[in-house]
Design a protein around this nucleic acid. Structure first.
Lengths: 153, 153
DNA sequence: TGCTCTACCGACTGAGCTACTGGGGAATAA
DNA sequence: TTATTCCCCAGTAGCTCAGTCGGTAGAGCA
């Protein structure tokens, strides 16, 4: 289950992506638009910037904007920045490796071997989906619904 | 990331599966064998029993045993019992549905639409892998290593 | 230079969850 | 009837999540 923090991040990213020619948006405006607590959003955007997904400008006319086009921002990258490595067991994490205390022999651990498969599948699906997909699918649903409405009238 | 509870559950299930002709094992023995706090294990086994994965017998000669053959126990089922529904967002959960407060329109929410894909992929991989796979892969690794050892001697 | 706008940053907090522990009760076999 | 074993509820230390508070520092404008 993804945290609220990550959900807020996606809402913010979708909003930023819809901004024409990547103009900076203020934290305060974004917070109001998306109904996200301002101080919390501040922290989220900062993390995304440090993760290389956003860029910022300080001072008048400043704000946040995407560092990459939406189709280059994978949802896996966003989740990894905000939730940490998504490995199902710590002994499979590349960035935050930790031995499982309860494990006698890592190399032959059945849990680890099976979870490695899960990890691989999960990573590949999360890395193949992007912010652009989120936006496109949402648009598709909206126009689909609109057509149904028009038809029923 | 799966919890310690779930990891303990897998260790216990692997141990129970290795028992010849499904003889019951005591909580206490299992706890000692696998180095799991006894009272905590008690609770875990109880959950697995309620979830239909284990059966138990009270009194002398009692204990826990598998309710199904290992190849019918999917790791998805185990995780769902111990961690709850594995949907990435509450609005996709079938058993514990909850509306996301921050979501304006569920039907056209891009986060939900993309996460539905993730959910599907994750479910299908977790449901396709079983306790039997865990055991088999572990055995394979052990014999692979043994061959290497024999060869190097 | 000073003023205002904006992001940056560290410390703190309440609620809820994780990983347990303890004490007793109830079913079963001998 | 007694020993054995699971069943079940209540509680607790420590951690994480979802924020909040108060101040700092850099950028543009006058």
């Amino acid at each position: 289950m993804i945290s609220k923090k990550t959900k807020y991040a996606f809402l913010a990213l979708i909003n930023l992506a819809s901004q024409p020619n990547g103009q900076p948006i203020l934290i305060a405006d974004l917070a109001q638009d998306e109904n996200i607590p301002k101080k919390f959003l501040e922290f989220i955007l900062l993390s995304l910037r440090k993760g290389g997904i956003l860029q910022s400008r300080i001072g008048k006319g400043g704000g946040y904007y995407l560092a990459l086009p939406p189709n280059k921002i994978s949802i896996g990258a966003v989740i990894r920045i905000l939730e940490g490595d998504l490995a199902p067991v710590p002994c499979l994490s590349k960035t935050n490796y930790a031995r499982c205390e309860e494990c006698r022999d890592e190399a032959t651990c059945g849990i680890r071997l099976v979870m490695a498969d899960v990890n691989k599948t999960l990573s590949s699906v999360l890395d193949s989906l992007t912010l652009a997909d989120m936006i496109e699918r949402s648009k598709n649903e909206i126009s689909k619904r609109k057509n149904v409405m028009d038809f029923s009238i």
